[in-house]
Design a protein around this nucleic acid. Structure first.
Lengths: 294, 294
DNA sequence: TGACATAAACTCACATCGAGAATAAGTCAT
DNA sequence: ATGACTTATTCTCGATGTGAGTTTATGTCA
């Protein structure tokens, strides 16, 4: 069954956050995501990839999750695939590492993910360039009402709220409108790597809401504001301080270390640490069905 | 780069609901999930699979979503893979079809998914066999406190609530305890197909909470109780009637057809239809961050 | 000593949710 | 026609959660 044979590779969206900036590991001067061969010597994709990443970054991967398997013919990476009728499969992974390191065999470079998606950072303000982007998209939409509504929904126009989770959908619309290579539409990447990165950001932004993955990016001890800044960096949004704190301690996932921080001006803050112990029992909020508990 | 070559196939978890019973399409007398070759003639995996399924079932696939790519060496399907050092990749998909059909080239059979996971149906009551299952698991856990807590959490012991979303985690624990082939632990499937099915159920149960996929399984017009029974069949739980109705019309996804149903005894019910129009704008509940909207 | 900055606790109006009661409108046996 | 029964549909009520902002505490620095 030779038609079942395919070239398979792993692609990693590796994220670290330093100086409140979420960064992604790249190769080729920021032009591509790191990808590796599909090792046959490991028990699973996961463990093979983990070993490979650790050799590249010099740091352990705290969290690793499969993203999506890409194989669309028209959006495949141009590389490899000498034989014309052989398919090319990329299995994407999302990984979180605690520190950004210039160590490791591959001399990895890290770039802020907002270089590739500058319209996704709303921490300071709604980015100026969104005006230009939505203008171009509305021209593209033309008279098509469904398309116009979708632009309004995705980009929070006409009083609709900006939804930080829709990274991939926004990029796909820009791609569909063939604007992704225009100036003002962010830095490009090889092949479909920018789309894979968008998939990773989307997944991470959704995940931090119902699963305590943020802690994989935090140092051993941290203040509540540190934790808030981390979440804000990922979400690309400012959060409400006291409500953030309330939510955090309702979840019961952290405990005081007893130490205080001697930080930037102001009253010293208590230091906390993550306690993964009960982790699962908390199982957190999330959407619910109208249960009937008798 | 021959080490990058792999056998790739698609595996489908195809779900239909009839008579309030969620059913999954199988081959080989219920022993396996349908799987197909990895067609090179289509634009994407998705469209190739869609065409293939429609030829098999004789019905269009309403909804299709990629689940996971499986490639663990130790849990691979025994089949195929003549060459020893070639990897075997299965890309799993979840598909929803409105009707269960015995038509189509493959003469598909449909089986209730609760045959494979009998402990997952809590609509009538907590299944008796859970007592036996948790007993065996607690023996397996022994003195290991973490394991015991995990059993209690996954199976809702000691006052903890049963969480219908944890289908995969429960199956994985049973697998880890090597109980998956014991009598009373559900019907088996070839290779890792039962695990893939568990992945599909898990995904679907989670998804109905924040995205209106149920309607892909509903007929054109239906009563609110029909909709509730459908949701209950998937979730394996009874829901609270009036609260279910309240939630549904808050979401604003259905409208009255104007007709009434002449159904089973009792007051006639209004008929409704799904209106996918604004679909996305509703974007529904889900977990939230403590936003700050100025 | 006082201006400034951040931490931490608290308040309050309002929306959402679990639970169940009350009322409406059919069918069916007598 | 009447009453038992069944399901539909609407309301009510208390508990809990959420957005928004105020108040008080405790440090640094000019």
């Amino acid at each position: 069954m030779p038609e079942n044979l395919a070239y398979a590779e792993l692609i990693a969206v590796l994220v670290a956050v330093t100086d409140n900036e979420p960064r992604v590991m790249t190769i080729g001067a920021g032009e591509a995501l790191p990808s590796g061969p599909f090792e046959t010597s490991h028990r699973s994709l996961q463990s093979g990839l983990r070993a490979w990443i650790e050799s590249q970054t010099g740091h352990p991967v705290g969290y690793l999750e499969q993203l999506y398997t890409f194989a669309d013919r028209d959006r495949a990476t141009e590389a490899a695939s000498a034989a014309p009728h052989t398919r090319h499969i990329s299995i994407g992974y999302l990984g979180l590492v605690r520190e950004q390191a210039a160590l490791g065999a591959g001399r990895p470079e890290w770039h802020s993910w907002y270089e590739y998606f500058p319209w996704e950072d709303h921490r300071e303000r709604r980015p100026e360039l969104l005006n230009h982007i939505t203008e171009r998209l509305l021209v593209w939409a033309g008279e098509d009402v469904t398309r116009r509504q979708r632009v309004e929904f995705l980009f929070g126009l006409n009083g609709l709220l900006w939804n930080e989770d829709l990274v991939l959908q926004r990029y796909e619309m820009i791609y569909e409108a063939q604007l992704e290579k225009e100036p003002g539409f962010g830095r490009q990447m090889a092949g479909d790597h920018r789309r894979i990165l968008a998939t990773g950001i989307t997944r991470l932004r959704a995940k931090i809401k119902y699963y305590p993955v943020v802690f994989e990016l935090m140092p051993d001890s941290f203040t509540l504001l540190d934790l808030q800044r981390m979440t804000e960096a990922l979400a690309g949004l400012r959060l409400h301080k006291s409500n953030f704190r309330r939510q955090v301690d309702q979840q019961n996932l952290i405990e005081e270390t007893g130490e205080m921080s001697s930080e930037t001006g102001g009253r010293p803050a208590k230091l906390f640490r993550y306690r993964p112990a009960i982790l699962e029992a908390s199982a957190l909020s999330g959407a619910r069905l109208p249960y009937s508990r008798h």
